[in-house]
Nucleic acid binder design. Structure first.
Length: 426
RNA sequence: GGAGAGGUGGCCGAGUGGUCGAAGGCGCUCCCCUGCUAAGGGAGUAGGCGUCAAAAGCGUCUCGAGGGUUCGAAUCCCUUCCUCUCCGCCA
């Protein structure tokens, strides 16, 4: 959500950002709406002032017993009332129209976000180790899992439909181990506070983080008007909604391990095989709330935390600086971490680390008191740390052995009762 | 599901149809005082919008939200959302 006053003062910057997002210039239409609104406000205020003054005189007239004056002013106020009412209605409608328009707009882009229209234009920012090499043909995760009998899409389809999976035995445990490991890493080494927050949220929470109003088709709604979270970014970021955060408590860093639910509308036919793209998956999320001057470095910090997960798992990855056309609407700058998947012979997204600036904070009305003692909006950031389902895939494919067994990364063994590998087909 | 209570400033909390954006307290800021600290004394301290280059000032709106009664509503009425308590049910 944008501050219309900021748009008026920075129309060019604003329009350039929108253009880079593939939208036309937006400021002119918005400012026109706002000009009309402000004119109404001015008229309304003037009338209200007259009404208020007249009301006071009525009180005085009545007190002094001046019946004639009393009636005269009453008459004036009577007509003023309707006019004021009309202007108030007009003002409300105009403000609502402006707010609705502002709510639709994507976030600003930071200057260092590369231009580009698709993922092809993302810029590599660095990587960690070379792609894993095998002296046998690498299998995809679902081949490994189905062959060993602990990854079952058929049964999942009977229960829930496509894009669901049933994991059994060691693989179910490995999924749990990955989540536990990452959560412990963030809480014990990275300074995050673990949070267990709702998975079912009000519509307002999704407006706050920006999934609504534009992306309702991506999430699942319940029959009572609530929504299943598409990411715990929603629950965690909204922790500060409608509040004034104590500046001494910033940066606030929270993390949680939760299921995420996504409708995946519009990705029909994409990644249909395996568990890369599911309607339900586990994810460890990191959310940070900080002051505006600290959000850039905070994003670097979140990225380093996510990278640390990958390094400890010892899975090859690269970091991308997402281009304008590939970025989500709610963020100002995004770094993706892509894990190397030998079975696919490709890097695939496993984490996304973004800074939203004050865009979400304005929607949530989340503020803090700055050094001058004035209220200002906080900056919010989030990053996957990392997606559990995809980490499971990455571990399976990178740690696979010729016989279809899978070695267990060192850091996960404590969470697997010391087990060193998951056996392949019997 | 049944019955009840309540939503007021950063927080707690008082509040009667008018002079209330709102007592008091806490917190915070500044000043005074004491060698330092603690304690004490004094002053200040809601937010949004509009106007303004900006600040000040001025105007206006806001006591959950929306509507109504009234010359006038935090206060009365209606609707609605939310929170809490008790009972029932339940992991």
């Amino acid at each position: 959500m944008f501050d219309i006053k900021w748009i008026r003062a920075n129309a060019e910057t604003f329009d350039r950002s929108m253009s880079r997002r593939g939208l036309g210039p937006q400021s002119a239409a918005l400012l026109e709406l706002d000009d009309a609104r402000r004119k109404t406000v001015a008229d309304m205020n003037a009338l209200q002032e007259r009404r208020n003054a007249a009301s006071k005189q009525i009180g005085q007239a009545k007190a002094s017993g001046d019946e004639e004056k009393f009636k005269a002013i009453m008459a004036e106020v009577g007509s003023l009332k309707d006019e004021v009412q009309a202007l108030e209605d007009k003002e409300r409608a105009q403000t609502e129209a402006l707010t609705d328009a502002l709510l639709q707009l994507p976030n600003l882009l930071r200057d260092d976000v590369p231009d580009g229209g698709s993922e092809a234009d993302n810029v590599e920012r660095g990587n960690y180790s070379e792609p894993t090499q095998f002296n046998f043909a690498a299998r995809e995760h679902w081949e490994l899992g189905e062959a060993a009998g602990h990854m079952d899409f058929e049964t999942a389809a009977k229960i829930s439909g496509s894009r669901f999976v049933v994991l059994r035995r060691d693989l179910a445990r490995l999924e749990r181990a990955i989540g536990q490991f990452m959560l412990d890493l963030h809480t014990q080494e990275h300074g995050f506070t673990e949070v267990s927050a709702p998975l079912l949220v009000r519509e307002e929470a999704l407006y706050g983080t920006g999934q609504l109003p534009k992306f309702s088709e991506d999430a699942f709604a319940t029959t009572d008007g609530r929504w299943l979270i598409p990411t715990s970014e929603v629950s965690l970021t909204n922790l500060v909604r409608e509040s004034i955060v104590d500046a001494a408590e910033l940066p606030m860093r929270v993390t949680s391990l939760t299921p995420c639910f996504r409708a995946e509308a519009g990705s029909a036919g994409k990644d249909t095989r395996g568990m890369l793209r599911q309607h339900q998956f586990w994810k460890v999320e990191m959310v940070a709330v900080t002051t505006p001057d600290k959000s850039d470095e905070e994003q670097e910090y979140l990225l380093s935390c996510a990278e640390n997960v990958m390094q400890k798992l010892d899975v090859p990855y690269r970091v991308l600086r997402l281009c304008a056309g590939d970025m989500g609407a709610t963020m100002q700058r995004t770094f993706d971490i892509e894990a190397w998947l030998p079975g696919q012979d490709a890097y695939r997204e496993i984490s996304s680390v973004s800074v939203a600036g004050d865009w979400q904070a304005r929607r949530m009305n989340a503020r803090y008191r700055n050094k001058d003692g004035d209220l200002d909006y906080v900056h919010t950031l989030n990053g996957s740390g990392v997606a559990v389902g995809r980490a499971l895939i990455a571990v399976m494919e990178n740690y696979q052995q010729q016989d279809g067994s899978i070695r267990i990364p060192d850091v996960l063994r404590p969470y697997m009762g010391g087990q060193e590998q998951i056996d392949g087909p019997a």
